[in-house]
Design a protein around this nucleic acid. Sequence first.
DNA 1: TCTTGCACATACCAATTAGTATGTTCATCT
DNA 2: AGATGAACATACTAATTGGTATGTGCAAGA
Lengths: 195, 195
Amino acid sequence: MIDTRRNILEKNYEAMHRHGFQGVRPDKVISELGITKGAFYHYFPGKLELGYAVVDEIIGPRYTGLWQQLEHYQGHPVEGIVWCLEYIRSGMNEQSCALGCPLNNLINEMAPLDEGFRIRLQGIMETMHSAIARALQRAADKGLLNRTLDAKNYAYFVLAAMEGCFSVGKSMQRRTAFDAALDELIGTLRGLKQG
Amino acid sequence: MIDTRRNILEKNYEAMHRHGFQGVRPDKVISELGITKGAFYHYFPGKLELGYAVVDEIIGPRYTGLWQQLEHYQGHPVEGIVWCLEYIRSGMNEQSCALGCPLNNLINEMAPLDEGFRIRLQGIMETMHSAIARALQRAADKGLLNRTLDAKNYAYFVLAAMEGCFSVGKSMQRRTAFDAALDELIGTLRGLKQG
DNA sequence: TCTTGCACATACCAATTAGTATGTTCATCT
DNA sequence: AGATGAACATACTAATTGGTATGTGCAAGA
């Protein structure tokens, strides 16, 4: 293999997405990869550190990379947020809807169980939160909103609603429910715009 | 014990809340209860059926019981929804915030993994969704809303935002984040009211 | 009184899991 | 050429997990 470590990481990421971290069986994953335990324990001290690496190297960059683009978005900051949401939607199909948001899944599973996970996941959420809050604040500062709001508090709400869309889609096993909830969130956001 | 079965159910519910279903070790839970495997397997065929029973007999009734009260709420239906949300908030402390919503947790963990769980959890969500959608529709029919909306779609959004509040609170390990997100949701809901 | 069966306890077990200890191969540097 | 170490493979293991098989006490009915 060209990059065994990366393959291990990505396959285990997929397994984590489906089964949760506790449900991952590194043995099975690596045997599906056609390699053995030797390779796995060569690159990772153990299962826990593998989980951390998946968060640090796959999940974290994916989310922070997206939301940090808000900083450079030209146009109404609210539309920037909507753009991010639509980007997320565009990357989804029926299956990924049924599996839910990898970040949301991991938060709900691991945040209360392991400090290492919790700190990492909290860091990702804080980065996303800051990006959204700053966008809202910019909009407010430029008088682009039709009411006053607390940017930080509202950013928590946006994050919550977005993650919740995944939970709804997952519980219903239907994209239509995810889409409906997301459409209403977007409508609510656009309702903040001046004019 | 007065009701061993109920004790088993409730202790395992607590364990599921903390560790997730896959993380529950029925052995440990029952030994903490001071009973043995004999008692457990006398009342339940196995771990899976225990999980189903927890959903059917504890989680389900708790949620559906709350939201179905919307039907009899006197006053603006939107305030009925707000009342339910405030009721949920009132039942939370720092610890339950860190552990998250039992329903949300279970959906995110088990919906893609097991049909038995999925059907049960979906049923609970559909009951809640219907209750919210009907409340919104009543408000619309009575001309109590300041804009038109699709009650069913908006109900998905309300559910999503609510569940998302738990995810946010859980990831941040702080009630303030949960409260902030929930306050904004409530503000958004009240913004629908006429006048 | 005898029996039946519920409500558990005790003892055992096979499979799984995560991990370790120990090779082996091969490229690279000296 | 010989030494070295990265990159794996193989074989083993201790602990855990979920479950079964069997035993026991005791209350209620025949």
